[in-house]
Design a protein around this nucleic acid. Structure first.
Lengths: 253, 253
DNA sequence: CTCAATTTGTTCGTATGTATG
DNA sequence: ACATACATACGAACAAATTGA
């Protein structure tokens, strides 16, 4: 398998030792090697990846600096930290669950400087409202930011509870507003990578993988009253999908 | 904003020009600059990113090699290719739609050499069957592979239609088998990165973002008869989620 | 037509990082 | 630990093409 590595490596020009480090890191995070386990010897790794010994060491040095492994001369390299408990951020796929999970979140509102262009809508997403209020915030857990949020709220909606919208998650406030009917709510998710802004606010590397979620809520007149553009840290999220939510499939045919 | 770039850059040790290239590529793919548009001048870019002119050029050279931009001395750099029509692979979130989209796929079966450990199951996913048949395949569209699939099928299920399972998508075959009841079917998705194997089969860079989907189908006895581990190219997929699939939210409270 | 402003192209020297054996 | 080769990044100066005044 690994005679391909050199070729595969060529596809990106990222330094080899970083690529190797990422692979080893992933093996540990995936539980391939558990806490306390001894990982493959340098010899095995240089054979597996067909690279120089020093390059393997460079990769492992990186992991050591991260505190992920512990090296002992003559003994081997061992997993030093338990990396379970990640992937705690479950993206919900229905309205009620979504509200439930975010209603206690306290966003950190960011200033919005320049006039903001109206949100981009897919035609199937409904019509644009006349004017929108734009809010920007960072969602954190503890001191770890996990999402950068941009929200367009139809002006009349925003006007109903401006204070609430500035102190709580917009989606959550929206769900409680009297007399506001949500006819449709729709989300799309693509895998992206952090631009400078996202990298800065989420404290992740430039181009680190992200989940870009576009979320639209439409009222009974077909007007998009909420348009959210959310960028999540890719390494925190997990999606659960019940494929039979609409009942079991028809297996008579 | 961009005085942060140096600091942000430090978070990953990927070469700077690659990081900048990725950002510019993303801007084009996001439609920030459309086909034929002139992108920012070298001068503006070096100011924005606070980097040397030569480094910006190196980044843009990369995009030119990809055919994404066209440079003209004295005029500027222009978007040369329309990058619409990506993100064509829609991951479905309910059984019927899933079957519909994959039933015509023709997998390319890969040989399975060594004995394969039984699939890992979350306790909530059901019980393990006694024995499984393991199938491995690459899904492609045209000559572009988009998913690397590993499927564990409970032996009795596999035995019902071994040929079909080797020539068609397992999930699709499964849905048509007489007398096989699917009581629950569940999917989880996390964002990951390509290991050497995935990079090789999907023809992407090592550590390129992927979507790792774990899919389990359970029969009426609580036995997991199908366990799929699917690695998708991250840049092809798009998830659509209808938040109100279970009816509109209760807005009386 | 010429000139100046704009914009990309080229080259140098230097320092540091990456990868090999 | 060392010697070697190549890649990355900087800043600065200069060259060449394009445009419009």
């Amino acid at each position: 398998m690994t005679e391909h590595l050199v070729k595969t490596y060529q596809r990106s020009r990222v330094p080899l030792y970083l690529q190797v480090a990422a692979i080893l890191r992933k093996r540990i995070e995936d539980g391939h090697w558990a806490l306390g386990d001894k990982i493959s010897t340098l010899e095995k790794l240089e054979a597996e990846f067909q690279i120089a010994r020093v390059t393997v060491r460079q990769a492992i040095e990186l992991l050591q600096k991260e505190g992920l492994v512990d090296r002992r001369q003559g003994k081997g390299t061992f997993v030093a930290r338990d990396v379970k408990g990640k992937r705690w951020l479950r993206l919900e796929t229905d309205w009620d669950a979504l509200i439930r999970t975010i209603e206690d979140n306290v966003p950190h509102i960011l200033p919005v400087a320049t006039p903001v262009p109206p949100p981009r809508l897919d035609p199937t997403d409904g019509k644009l409202a006349k004017r929108y209020q734009y809010l920007r915030s960072v969602q954190s857990r503890g001191d770890e930011p996990y999402a950068l949020v941009g929200v367009h709220l139809a002006k009349p909606i925003y006007a109903m509870a401006p204070k609430a919208f500035k102190t709580r998650t917009a989606f959550s406030v929206l769900s409680e507003l009297e007399g506001v009917a949500i006819a449709r709510a729709h989300q799309t998710l693509v895998i992206g990578s952090a631009d400078t802004e996202a990298a800065h606010f989420l404290k992740i590397a430039l181009n680190a993988p992200t989940a870009e979620v576009h979320c639209v809520a439409v009222d009974d007149k077909g007007v998009a009253i909420y348009v959210g553009e959310i960028i999540y840290r890719g390494d925190f999220i997990k999606l659960d999908i019940d494929l039979l939510a609409n009942g079991p499939p028809d297996d008579t045919k």
